[in-house]
Design a protein around this nucleic acid. Structure first.
Lengths: 139, 139
DNA sequence: ATCCTTGCAAAGCATTTGCAGTCAC
DNA sequence: GTGACTGCAAATGCTTTGCAAGGAT
């Protein structure tokens, strides 16, 4: 169950479970819309009317720190958050900023080939996203 | 020669050649350090002492609009600019933010495979970057 | 009881904008 | 001469921070 997972991950880092963090995590797990911090704020406020945007930001960073969420910082505008932790990529609409999941991954062999060109760097990962236009923005 | 290239690209969009745009473009072509807008500003101020940061921002966006530069907006902090227009990727230091070029590209076949998973999107391109730690940040 | 977390308001930073004066064509 | 561009300063948008009050263990 979600709360248990969160409690365990938080304890590992000496942090505490709170209603606010619980609500943020549950909302993030319940959607695949890759919400911005503000969208999380608006959604969670339905359950915890007094929550502040600053708390949402702090909670999201805490989740990222625990490995329970990813921060998607491609793109120019605001960051988006994703609670899917398995390997996958994204496609972003250049017009409205919407982000969707793209299943599948690049072959390790190809990533390795690029990695060899990164002289002097200790490469620990990579990020890739497709760019284009979503259905509604094309019309 | 650089100025001619710039003039031609600007004219195509009904825009004018100025000393400021010339200096920004020349600086960007002369370096492979993927500078931020502020770094461009500091460098160009040596040649045009009165230039403003706002003008640098506007000039950079103009260059991007003309296809003479790329904006690298991965990462959390400030955007970086690159006048290399051939296909290549980047590696970014997670500690200091430094960006270096990585030669080579992904096989079209692999990109195509991913693209098929982007339902409803008209995919026009992609971006990928390696992440890791540079020599100085590892010590 | 301790120390972490919250909410508020203020600060921070990168970037953009409005506008009067200036410049390119 | 006309419309585009510059420089300044103020504004914007997203995110972070300082701090007193409240909450988790």
């Amino acid at each position: 169950m979600l709360e248990k997972t969160l409690r365990r991950a938080l304890e590992r880092g000496g942090q505490r479970y709170t209603e606010q963090r619980g609500a943020v995590y549950e909302f993030l797990m319940s959607t695949d819309s890759h919400p911005t911090a503000d969208e999380v704020f608006l959604a969670v406020r339905g359950r915890i009317p007094g929550i502040s945007l600053a708390t949402v930001y702090k909670s999201l960073e805490t989740l990222v720190g625990c490995g329970l969420a990813m921060k998607l910082t491609y793109g120019d505008s605001s960051a988006r958050y994703d609670a899917r932790t398995d390997l996958h990529h994204h496609v972003r609409c250049l017009s409205c900023g919407k982000v969707c999941d793209v299943p599948g991954s690049l072959p390790e062999r190809e990533v390795q080939r690029l990695r060899e060109g990164a002289d002097g760097f200790e490469v620990t990962g990579y990020r890739m996203e497709l760019l284009g236009y979503c259905t509604s923005c094309r019309s």
